[in-house]
C-alpha cells in the first residue's frame, strides 16, 4: 500500500468571475521513502495540490474533492478539522518557500520548536528543550543550545530554512511536503539544503513531495517527477526516464527553457511562448495545445488520453516525441 494515495483530486475556488479549477483531477501514489518532484510553472496547481493534501485550503471559498485521498490508510478528506490538526505536524508536515516569513518574528526559535513537540508528543519543558537541541544539531546549526533563545531575524535565510526543516521533522512525520523550499535561497545555500533534506530523508525513510519549478533541483533530489500543467499531472516518470525521453510537449518546453551546464555553450534557451490557460473556462482539448510546438493534427480533434511510454512513465500527449 502506498503511503499517500491521491485519486482524482479536484480543488476549486469560488471567485466573483466564476469557479477556478486550480487542481483538476490529479492522481498519483507516493511510496514509503520515495521523493516525488512536483514540477510546473506558477499557477499550475502545485502548491494548491500540497495545501489540499494538508487540508489547509480555506473552505469556503475553496472546495476540495477527491475519489480518494489517503495517508497510511487514513481518509484525509473525511477527517474533522480537529483530527486533521492532530495529523498535521505529526504525520505530515510542510515547509514553505520564504524562510524569512515562515517563522514568527516575535517568538524565539526554541519556543517555536518546543511548541510543536509539546503539542504532538506531549513532551515536558525540559524534554522538549533537549529534543529541540538535538533537532537543531541534526539540521546543522552550530551552538544549538544557545541558538534556542535567538529570534528568527538573527538567522540567515539558509539557517532559517534549516530551522523550518527541524520544526517540520520534529515529530518524525511520514510525509514531508516542501513547497519551493529552496527558491528564495542563493545557489550554494540551496545545494546545502538539498543535501540536508536528502540525508534526513535517507536516515529516516521519510517520503517527500518536493515542489519546484526548477528542473535542476528536482533532478538532483527526486526519484520520480510529476509534471503539472493547468491543474493536471500531464506527465509522470522516473527521474532518468523523464530527462531521457520527455513525452509531453510541456515537459519538452520546460527542458528547452532550462539552462544546462554541460550543454553546448552557444545553445540558446527556448522560452515557452504564450500564457497558461484561464482556469475558469472549461478546457475541452489539451490545455497546452495553444503553446505547444510539437502538436499533431489529432490534438485539434480530441482531448489527449493518458498513454504509457515506459515503466511507470505516463503522459497525456498525442504526439509521439520519442520517435
Amino acid at each position: 500500500m502506498p503511503l499517500l494515495s491521491v485519486r482524482n483530486l479536484q480543488t476549486r475556488f469560488a471567485t466573483d468571475r466564476g469557479i477556478v479549477r486550480a487542481v483538476n483531477g490529479v492522481s498519483f501514489d507516493l511510496e514509503e521513502g520515495e521523493v516525488l518532484g512536483l514540477v510546473g510553472e506558477s499557477g499550475s496547481g502545485k502548491s494548491v495540490t500540497a495545501l489540499s493534501i494538508m487540508r489547509l485550503v480555506p473552505e469556503p471559498p475553496g472546495k476540495v474533492t477527491a475519489d480518494s485521498l489517503t495517508l497510511e490508510g487514513t481518509d484525509l478528506l473525511r477527517l474533522s478539522e480537529a483530527d486533521a490538526r492532530e495529523i498535521r505536524g505529526s504525520r505530515m508536515a510542510m515547509i514553505f518557500q520564504d524562510p524569512m516569513r515562515s517563522l514568527n518574528p516575535v517568538l524565539t526559535i526554541g519556543r517555536q520548536l518546543t511548541e510543536v513537540l509539546r503539542r504532538h508528543q506531549k513532551l515536558s519543558g525540559t524534554a522538549a528543550r533537549r529534543r529541540a537541541i538535538e533537532l537543531l544539531e541534526t539540521v546543522g546549526i552550530p551552538m544549538a543550545e544557545k541558538r534556542l533563545a535567538a529570534y528568527p531575524h538573527q538567522f540567515s535565510g539558509g539557517m532559517r530554512q534549516r530551522v523550518m526543516i527541524a520544526i517540520a521533522l520534529s515529530c518524525n512525520p511520514r510525509l514531508l511536503i516542501a513547497d519551493e523550499a529552496t527558491t528564495a535561497l542563493d545557489v550554494t545555500i540551496q545545494a546545502q539544503i538539498i543535501d540536508l533534506v536528502k540525508r534526513l530523508q535517507r536516515e529516516r525513510g521519510t517520503s517527500v513531495i518536493w515542489i519546484s519549478h526548477d528542473l535542476g533541483v528536482v533532478a538532483g533530489l527526486c526519484d520520480r517527477v510529476n509534471v503539472m500543467y493547468a491543474g493536471n499531472v500531464v506527465e509522470t516518470a522516473p527521474i532518468r526516464e523523464l530527462f531521457h525521453r520527455p513525452s509531453h510537449g510541456y515537459t519538452l518546453g520546460l527542458m528547452g527553457s532550462t539552462p544546462r551546464v554541460d550543454g553546448s555553450g552557444t545553445a540558446r534557451l527556448t522560452p515557452i511562448e504564450g500564457m497558461p490557460p484561464n482556469l475558469i473556462d472549461p478546457i475541452p482539448l489539451c490545455p497546452f495545445l495553444p503553446r505547444c510546438r510539437v502538436s499533431v493534427p489529432a490534438c485539434q480533434a480530441r482531448p489527449p488520453e493518458r498513454r504509457e511510454f515506459g515503466v511507470g512513465h505516463w503522459a497525456s500527449c498525442l504526439a509521439d516525441l520519442a520517435k
Partner: peptide
C-alpha cells in the same frame, strides 16, 4: 495572511493557539 500563520497551521496549531 503571514506565512508563519499558515506554517503554524501546517504544524497542527488550532485557532486558539
Amino acid at each position: 495572511e503571514d506565512v508563519y500563520v499558515t506554517a503554524a497551521r501546517a504544524l497542527g496549531a488550532g485557532p486558539a493557539r
